[in-house]
């Protein structure tokens, strides 16, 4: 808050209506977190499939789309649950307003989820040859399993805007100065790569040493860049008074300071330290632990960044 330095300008609200509290709460945090996993796993997994032969990363072809499918459905479910009129979600498709990033995002995310579902079906049926062996649809899917490799580049390409459209929704939220910054797009992309690499690291037990080291390093580099950007915002962000007042909630003594630093330490500092110290000897227990911690920390980092601009009085 802007402080009054002389008595004559000291001003206090003495009567007002109740203000909105936090409007976008934990459901939207979960939404963003799950979407980061859903798109990140595809981006990082596709890179791994491009870089390494299937025998070095045996489970990626089927597990990558399945994890993405589950995460995307969590994302879509909580998007729906957070609506005050969830049954009217169809209006986005029947009465779309394309200046809104919410509309464009919903269309892209729906298409993306549909394509990932197809990948998951092909991947799973190829991985389990006896699953639904006599089923006609399953037979048709198996017969067209080459579609997986053909579709994957387009799906990766679509994953980029699906990852970043939330940053554009936040940029369109003109009332929240903290989000109106290009850095949000970078952070959204880094969150996806961080979540994707952390998730794949958790399931990388059967991988060779080299691909495991590579994905661990992707995680380490991503958390390092993301952490640096957060610290840049924290220490050197000299923006307008609204953003400064918002950041005061995470500065020492602020009501979200603990949660912010918990997220930074658990999700960024410790995973970076664990990966860089254990990647050489390929200590998988520690690498997997780093992946789990990165996912936990990412949730809380998203949560803080979502909530603090909503704490400012706007009127």
């Amino acid at each position: 808050m802007v402080e009054s330095t002389v008595a004559a300008t000291h001003a206090v609200v003495s009567f007002d209506v109740a203000l909105n509290g936090i409007v976008w709460g934990w459901m939207i945090t979960l939404n963003m977190w799950a979407k980061s996993i859903g798109t990140g796993v595809i981006m990082v997994g596709a890179y791994m499939l491009y870089k390494y032969s299937k025998d070095k990363i045996p489970n990626v072809r089927w597990l990558m789309p399945i994890i993405s499918f589950v995460a995307l459905n969590v994302f879509l479910l909580f998007t729906l649950l957070d609506l005050h009129q969830p049954l009217r979600m169809v209006n986005i498709f029947f009465h779309p307003h394309f200046t809104s990033a919410i509309t464009v995002g919903a269309w892209m995310a729906s298409l993306f989820t549909g394509l990932v579902t197809l990948l998951a079906a092909i991947g799973l049926l190829d991985y389990m040859p006896n699953l639904l062996r006599s089923n006609k649809t399953a037979k048709k899917v198996r017969a067209n399993s080459g579609l997986y490799e053909k579709l994957l580049p387009y799906i990766v390409f679509l994953a980029l805007p699906v990852t970043m459209y939330t940053a554009i929704i936040m940029a369109q939220s003109s009332a929240r100065g903290l989000w109106e910054a290009p850095i949000e797009m970078a952070q959204m992309m880094l969150a996806a790569i961080m979540a994707g690499s952390a998730t794949l690291l958790i399931v990388a037990e059967s991988w060779g040493k080299e691909p495991r080291a590579r994905i661990a390093m992707i995680l380490a580099v991503t958390v390092a860049i993301s952490f640096t950007l957060y610290m840049g915002e924290y220490f050197f962000s000299f923006k307008n008074s609204e953003v400064e007042a918002t950041l005061a909630f995470i500065h020492l003594g602020g009501s979200y300071s603990f949660e912010f630093w918990f997220a930074m330490i658990v999700g960024y500092i410790i995973p970076f330290a664990l990966v860089t110290t254990s990647v050489k000897e390929d200590n998988y227990t520690l690498l997997r632990f780093a992946g789990i911690l990165a996912l936990i920390g990412l949730y809380f980092a998203k949560d803080v960044w979502l909530k603090i601009p909503q704490l400012l009085p706007l009127s």
């Binding site: 909105n20 009129q85 009217r88 809104s100 929704i169 009127s315």
Partner: peptide, 20 residues
């Protein structure tokens, strides 16, 4: 009658003029 209750407008309005 068309509103889906996403609260995007509440997040966007700099004047806190919209309520649910």
């Amino acid at each position: 009658s068309r509103c889906i209750g996403c609260a995007g407008c509440i997040m966007a309005c700099p004047y806190d003029a919209i309520y649910m």
